[in-house]
Amino acid sequence: MKEMTPQEVQAYLESNPEASVIDVRETAEVRAGKIPQAVNIPLGLVEFRIQDFDKSKEHILVCRSGKRSGMAGRFLEARGYRIINMAGGMLEWDGPTV
Rank of each mutant, 00 (worst) to 15 (best):
G89A: 08
G66Y: 08
E58D: 07
A72F: 03
K57M: 13
E58I: 12
M86D: 02
D94C: 04
I84K: 12
G73F: 09
G66T: 08
N85Y: 05
V62I: 14
S56T: 15
R82M: 09
R74T: 12
K57F: 11
P96F: 00
R82T: 13
H59W: 12
G95L: 07
W93T: 05
F53L: 05
R64G: 12
G88M: 10
P96E: 13
G95S: 10
R68C: 02
K55C: 07
I50H: 05
R74N: 12
K67R: 14
Q51C: 04
D54F: 07
I60N: 06
I84R: 10
I60R: 00
E92A: 15
G66D: 10
F53W: 04
Y81S: 04
Y81L: 13
I83M: 07
F75W: 13
I83S: 00
A78N: 14
E58W: 01
E77F: 06
G73N: 11
A78Y: 00
G95K: 08
D54Q: 09
L91Q: 15
G88L: 08
I84V: 14
G88T: 08
F75P: 05
R79V: 06
M90P: 04
Q51Y: 11
S65E: 13
L91K: 14
R82C: 04
Q51R: 14
L91Y: 13
E77G: 07
M90F: 05
L76I: 02
W93P: 04
I50V: 15
G80E: 09
L61F: 14
Y81W: 07
F53Q: 04
E77W: 08
G95C: 06
P96A: 15
G89F: 06
R68I: 05
G70N: 14
K67I: 14
L61H: 00
L76A: 01
A72Q: 02
E92Y: 12
